[in-house]
Simulated assay, not measured.
Amino acid sequence: MPALTSASLCCTLFSICFLFISADQKNIKAVPGQTVTLPCQAPKHRHIIVVEWSRRDLDTEYVLLYRDEQFDPENQHPSFKNRVDLQDRQMKDGDVSLILKDVMTADTGTYECRVFQTETNNGRRVYLKTGPIIINLSVVLPDQKVVNITAESGQNVILPCRAPNTLLIPAVEWSRRDLETQSVLLYWEKGIVTYFQHPSFMNRVDLQDRQMKDGDVSLILKDVTINDTGTYQCRIFMNEKHPWKSIISIIDLSVVSPGQTGGHTEDGGKEDGLTQGHYGLAAILIFCILLGVLIFLMCKQPKDQSKQN
């Protein structure tokens, strides 16, 4: 009883009483490009004054913040701008579920939902808090398809890559798996960064559209050579403050000499001219000719000796 009396006295003095409601963690899986809903339900029939959606690794910035009867974009993390919304902006029946559009691998993380509400109890305004409701979101690549492209030496080729067009893309990185830390192209702050670029790609690469309209971040590779053969990866940076990257395209490029046919040579190109079958026929023909000459000489020698006798 003394504890109840103290609690009642506290509510009387401050007209505030917090009720904490927790929920079990939920696990959600998605693949890049999907739109997902992170569920969060507050008690019904209470006035909602604040909704906080956060992610544990984002420090003080929010995934989504609703307060003073409007959304607060100033405290929102840049990577979620124009990508999140409440499932029901009217928040009927306490539904404050979050819609996250065009998810990427960088969206993987632990999300928390908190709701602050008020209700009147015996003439006093009571503040109640729900949460945190915890959602573990995992965005994983499916069995990603590799695009195969074959080009002839000297050609200009385009390696396709497209990001969700709802994103503002501050940077793009094209790499090749065998180049380790050096890049094929790094496009940052509306320009190509050459400091980390592999020397063989200097002045030979560019984005197909530097404006990146509709998310087009395809690469132009000029005057290709056999040495350009390899597996290329396209990544985009989600935002400037936190340089998260997400692989969105993998390209296998094969560069061959013009007019090549047949099998691969030891240097990775293809054989010109005669195929292996042609070489076999030529060898048989040469053998037959030599055999015929040898038989002719052997038959001619006895006749010449008989004439001498």
Rank of each mutant, 00 (worst) to 15 (best):
M202P: 01
T265P: 05
H198I: 06
G191Y: 12
K145L: 11
N148M: 10
I149G: 02
Q233A: 08
M238S: 13
R177C: 00
G154H: 01
Q155P: 05
I248S: 06
S257E: 12
K270D: 04
A163I: 06
E266W: 13
R210P: 01
S257L: 14
D228H: 02
M212G: 04
V157G: 04
T181P: 03
A151G: 04
E152W: 03
G191D: 13
D267T: 10
L167H: 11
R176I: 05
G154Y: 04
A171F: 02
T231K: 11
E271T: 13
I169D: 07
E271A: 13
S183C: 12
I248H: 12
D209T: 01
L186V: 03
G154M: 05
S246P: 00
L221V: 03
D223R: 12
D216N: 15
S257K: 14
N203I: 02
T166F: 05
V157D: 03
R204M: 06
P164R: 07
V255A: 01
N227K: 14
Y187C: 00
K213H: 14
N156I: 06
I247Y: 08
I169M: 07
S218C: 05
V255L: 00
D209M: 04
F237Y: 12
D223S: 11
I247V: 15
V146E: 11
K241R: 14
Q211C: 09
G262A: 08
T265D: 10
E152Y: 08
V172R: 06
Q197E: 02
V184N: 04
E266L: 10
H264V: 11
H264Q: 13
R176N: 00
D209I: 01
T181N: 08
Q155R: 04
D206Y: 03
T181C: 09
Y232T: 02
R210H: 04
T265K: 13
L179A: 00
S183Y: 15
Q233V: 10
R162F: 10
D267P: 01
E173K: 15
Q155A: 08
I250L: 06
M238F: 10
Q211H: 09
R177V: 07
V193H: 12
Y187F: 09
H264S: 11
W174Q: 00
R235E: 01
D223K: 15
L253K: 06
